[in-house]
Design a protein around this nucleic acid. Structure first.
Lengths: 223, 223
DNA sequence: CGAAGCATTGAGCTCACTCAATCTTCGTGG
DNA sequence: CCACGAAGATTGAGTGAGCTCAATGCTTCG
């Protein structure tokens, strides 16, 4: 865990300080960590579980603009107010700092600052690739790309059950729709279309098996 | 100029070093600074002019995923290869560094590192707001929001010509379409619709005047 | 003045959305 | 353990916003 977090280059002694300043907490599925608009929101590290970052219009239309996995950084150390809402998708554990504390910590540990910079840069690249997807890809391309992405991100292949290339999607249909900028119905229809074409298998619930990876990659037409 | 760039907190002596290491160059309108896929692309500062960052699918569909103004940072100091293409929208001047040089420079000047971190964080917020727009806003909302954004970004009101609230769009219709994830035709139609409703005036070329700001804000329905 | 590039306008179509009904899955309590 | 209810998922029918293709107009520069 620690090896992947922002504090990965920090000495054991300093790490103890981190834990003294940071506040560990558990949140349950569906609970919000930070609300868009919160003044001087905290920031920190996601220890376990998954968190979504959502933006929404005044009218209430929502879009997932980021997904966080264990070890990922939560929030922004400099923003005077939160721009987005952070919500736990699963039960999760976090280690959060007040902005002031975290900034002081950055000043003292330049390795953490550099690591954070790398992560921000990477998240920015990710966000921009998603912009391309949202603006220019068809529903079919989005679904195909999403499945390949998820397969790569999931470390638990259900090979044990005799299903090679099968894995459990960490998101509901509705959440997939929120990520891809589609509706639940369209996500569902595209998945059944892939199933009927024999490219994937849907084995009930959220588990999927990729039968024809080549076909799926062809449909993805990624950048 | 210097007051707004990443090197804003640097002493004069150190700034001289920067200029020795960095390479100044001029690029003309339409010329690419960095191509997506370039290995170890340079990074640096935009001195004058405007630059677009584009992502594109294999099929050639393009999307502008970022716009850079004078003083903005260009590129990524850590990426092993460029993810996006950077192209001058106008004649421009840059001050670029090799990645290795720039990273060394970051190590020596933590104020620059922090400034870069702030900018990255801000760009990330911007990109995520754009994701919401691309995924969930209608063409009308996108155009309205874009006009308001542009008006705020342009410092040259053409009040001198007796046109209060009039300004020159820095982008062609095609480029606006690329930013908003629409087509040229849709952009054009939406603009004439606004004109016919008396909300804006189109005075030939790229100049626009906002007649009814309240109305425009109502249509924007931003977050 | 002519040509090239940009912008506008029109007609028609398609893909994804909306609305609505049904089916499945899963957790809960009797 | 099973029945029930709620939430999630699938499927269908119909609609419409924005795309495509195509023609025309404007503007700016040689």
């Amino acid at each position: 865990m620690r090896s992947s977090a922002v504090c990965k280059g920090v000495s054991d002694a300093d790490l103890a300080t981190f834990h003294r300043i940071g506040r560990r907490s558990r949140v349950s599925r569906g609970q919000a960590l930070i609300w868009a608009g919160d003044p001087h929101p905290p920031c920190g590290s996601l220890v376990s579980g998954m968190v979504k970052i959502t933006a929404s219009t005044i009218g209430g239309r929502e879009q997932i603009v980021g997904l966080l996995y264990p070890g990922d950084f939560i929030g922004q150390p400099f923003a005077p107010q939160a721009e987005f809402t952070f919500t736990a998708l699963t039960d999760a554990q976090t280690c959060m700092f007040a902005q002031r504390d975290f900034r002081r910590l950055l000043d003292m540990h330049s390795c953490v600052e550099q690591e954070l910079l790398r992560r921000m840069a990477h998240s920015l690249d990710l966000a921009r690739h998603r912009m391309l997807m949202l603006a220019r890809q068809s529903a079919g391309e989005r679904i195909a790309g999403f499945l390949l992405e998820m397969e790569a991100a999931i470390e638990t292949p259900l090979a044990s059950e005799g299903r090679p290339n099968a894995f459990e999607l960490p998101l509901s249909r509705g959440q997939i729709a929120e990520v891809l900028g589609l509706t639940i119905e369209t996500v569902s229809r595209q998945l059944t279309k892939l199933k009927n074409r024999g490219i994937i298998a849907l084995c009930g619930g959220r588990s999927v098996a990729i039968i024809d990876r080549g076909g799926l990659e062809g449909l993805a037409e990624a950048a």
